[in-house]
Design a protein around this nucleic acid. Structure first.
Lengths: 142, 142
DNA sequence: CTAGGATCTAGAGCGGACTCTAGATCAAGC
DNA sequence: GCTTGATCTAGAGTCCGCTCTAGATCCTAG
């Protein structure tokens, strides 16, 4: 059965590192920080054996981290998921708060981009108009 | 003369903190890191006396920092400005590199926002459809 | 059987950006 | 003159998110 086969698919820490972009160090660190949804299985020899569920979750973590969610929040979110159904409002609240932060960030970045574009324009103009003449007052520019 | 008066306008470190949103500690720190365009004047008593030029520059710094420019880059940029005309290409390059990073960041944030919105949708739907029944398998959700 | 690389644990170290402390000095109001 | 609050310096401390180390163990290929 394809379904059964898929459920059994496991990965070493190195493979997970490849698939998520995290380092093996970071993966162990994340685990210590309790931000996986379940305890990671181990092989007979004591090596970590990750499932596709773990990998998917970690990929989400990576995205959320990239967008500035602190590890502590991810840990809280993981705890909610781990606890199972019944706290969806809490999860929703966490996500929604983060969405607001993300939107604020986008806003701020766009303003900054406008500032940069304006400055780039100023410099370009200066360069075009008077590259040879040193007639600017350093006090009035930045 | 309004112009002369404006040029003479000075601020204490506390006032600059208010106007830029930086803490007085951060302001002194920034100065140690050489990211002001000129040496800050001092009053007879040894207190810092900032000019409007300083404040404007610091506001730009704040924006660039908010968008993720490292202090080290700001220091380099300040050094270029301090050195005066003749290195506009360098400044342009610095800004342009940063603009690219900002754009990449916006991109990443927007992808993340999409992910969050999707997740929020999933949860909302779950809540609407089956808040009373505990029929989800924790292994298949996050 | 053995050599190599991947993995293990516990814990130390690091880089960035501040933040805070201590002890002294300065400045404005009473 | 005195108190109170802002500022000064030098340097230590903090927080975050990893990263790296050491020394041991496991496993796969030859």
């Amino acid at each position: 059965m394809a379904t059964a086969a898929q459920q059994e698919e496991t990965f070493t820490i190195g493979e997970v590192a490849e698939r998520t972009g995290l380092s093996v160090h970071a993966l162990r660190y994340y685990e210590r920080q309790d931000l996986l949804i379940g305890p990671v299985r181990r092989t007979s020899g004591g090596r970590r054996s990750y499932t596709t569920v773990d990998v998917d979750w970690l990929r989400i973590c990576v995205r959320l981290r990239e967008s500035g969610m602190p590890l502590a929040d991810l840990t809280r979110f993981a705890a909610l998921v781990r606890r199972g159904p019944g706290n969806e409002e809490d999860r929703l609240r966490l996500l929604d708060e983060h969405r607001q932060r993300v939107e604020a960030q986008i806003q701020a970045l766009e303003e900054c981009r406008a500032l940069i574009e304006w400055k780039v324009g100023v410099y370009t103009e200066h360069l075009r108009a008077g590259s040879a003449s040193g007639l600017w007052d350093p006090r009035h520019e930045a």
